[in-house]
């Protein structure tokens, strides 16, 4: 019971954060803020994966010698049977696979962020603003029978 309470909150908070950033992304009309929301959304997806990879009493998946001082200090905190059962050569490690995946996902995230921001900058140059409402208004004005000129009106 205590364990259920001690563990459930992690996913609950992460999901709440995931949805909050998705909410920012979906509601705002500002392109930069949309990108901030998107970047946060990706980060929280990363938090979810890393939460999956946690092993109680584990350490970072960089192999250490169980006989070394560090290894022994770690083993001393845990039930020997637990270490025996879940450890690798006497040390309990976290799960490395989600770490690898999220490393990749973080990189993908920054790549998306930079391309998105570059497009936002071009929107600003073409329309004079980065609010989607202003962009829509400018497009609507331009598609009327008498277009106001090729570059549109800034800050319409």
């Amino acid at each position: 019971m205590i364990d259920a309470l001690a563990t459930g909150y992690v996913y609950a908070i992460i999901v709440a954060m995931m949805m909050a950033s998705l909410f920012v992304l979906l509601t705002t009309g500002n392109l930069i803020r949309k990108m901030i929301g998107l970047s946060l959304f990706q980060t929280t997806a990363g938090l979810f994966y890393i939460a999956l990879s946690k092993v109680g009493g584990g350490t970072a998946p960089i192999i250490i010698d169980a006989e070394s001082a560090v290894g022994q200090a770690r083993a001393a905190r845990l039930d020997p049977a637990y270490v025996e059962h879940f450890g690798v050569d006497g040390v309990v490690y976290g799960n490395p696979l989600p770490h690898v995946l999220i490393l990749t996902a973080i990189v993908v995230g920054v790549a998306t962020l930079s391309v998105g921001l570059a497009i936002a900058v071009r929107v600003r140059e073409a329309y004079g603003d980065t609010e989607l409402d202003a962009v829509r208004r400018a497009d609507a004005a331009a598609s009327e029978p008498e277009p106001p000129g090729p570059r549109g009106r800034p800050n319409a």
Binding site: L25, L38, L52, T112, G116, I119
Partner: peptide, 30 residues
């Protein structure tokens, strides 16, 4: 110039799609 907001929307939608996919794969993995 309408290409810019169009590309931006595509980027947002595409990335939301990809991130949803990522979360879904996370559940399958879990």
């Amino acid at each position: 110039r309408r290409a810019y907001p169009a590309a931006f929307n595509y980027l947002i939608m595409g990335t939301i799609g990809a991130t949803f996919y990522l979360i879904g794969v996370g559940f399958l993995y879990a």
